[in-house]
Design a binder for these strands. Structure first.
Lengths: 110, 110
DNA sequence: TTCTATCATCGTAATATTACAATAAGAAAG
DNA sequence: CTTTCTTATTGTAATATTACGATGATAGAA
């Protein structure tokens, strides 16, 4: 139905899935890489670096903001974007824990 | 348009986004946790642990398989699922690199 | 005020996702 | 062969996502 049975899953799984969803589009990965590349905030010109229209980029930025991964502070005519440190480290921790919990399959079936 | 401008993005971003997409639903995260919990493969009964119908679970398993994160080997009447070690470690590496490349914002704007 | 630059939002169209019941496909049991 | 058990696939409906042009909103320049 295109609708997810949100209430049926564990909070930790929902949180991780939400972060993953934010990363689930190459444009958003590209935006994050642009923000990661510089140590300071970036004002505007994200649009110039992507092959997408201004409105589409703005929409992706909104999704990243709603996921909490980035912040956008108004600075006069422009908007200053940067990674949200807390959410970023939270997402990193959840991902790390998930991926690190793997141990090689003991059986011979695979 | 619901369609992604695939050709316009870097391969690394596409790969990371594809892995992230596989993790972008709580049911798939839950499935992966079930597989991670045991050191051996698990035959069937994933459906019993989730609040979803058999066909829906099967569809999620298919997506995880297509993303490469899991394998399913036929074992008589049942199917043996387990994490695909190579893809898992590849995804882990890409995620780790991405998250680790963050350094605190130097400026005062955020 | 008026113009311009920058970013957000709205409206819309195309496509994708999520979910389930029903059905199919395959292997083992009887 | 027929039945049963297990998983995959098909069909369908509801909702979500992706993308862009057009329009709004706001701040600074002229």
């Amino acid at each position: 139905m295109g609708i997810t049975k949100t209430e049926a899953f564990k909070a930790a799984d929902l949180t991780l899935a939400a972060y993953a969803k934010a990363l689930a589009h190459p444009a958003r990965v590209a935006i994050l890489r642009i923000l990661l590349e510089r140590s300071s905030c970036i004002c505007g010109d994200i649009v110039d670096e992507l092959p997408l229209s201004q409105s589409t980029v703005s929409q992706h930025l909104k999704e990243l903001k709603e996921a909490g991964l980035i912040k956008g502070d108004i600075d006069g005519k422009k908007v200053c974007y940067c990674i949200d440190e807390n959410a970023w480290k939270h997402a990193q921790l959840l991902m790390q824990k998930m991926f690190a919990s793997y141990t090689s399959c003991g059986t011979s079936c695979c």
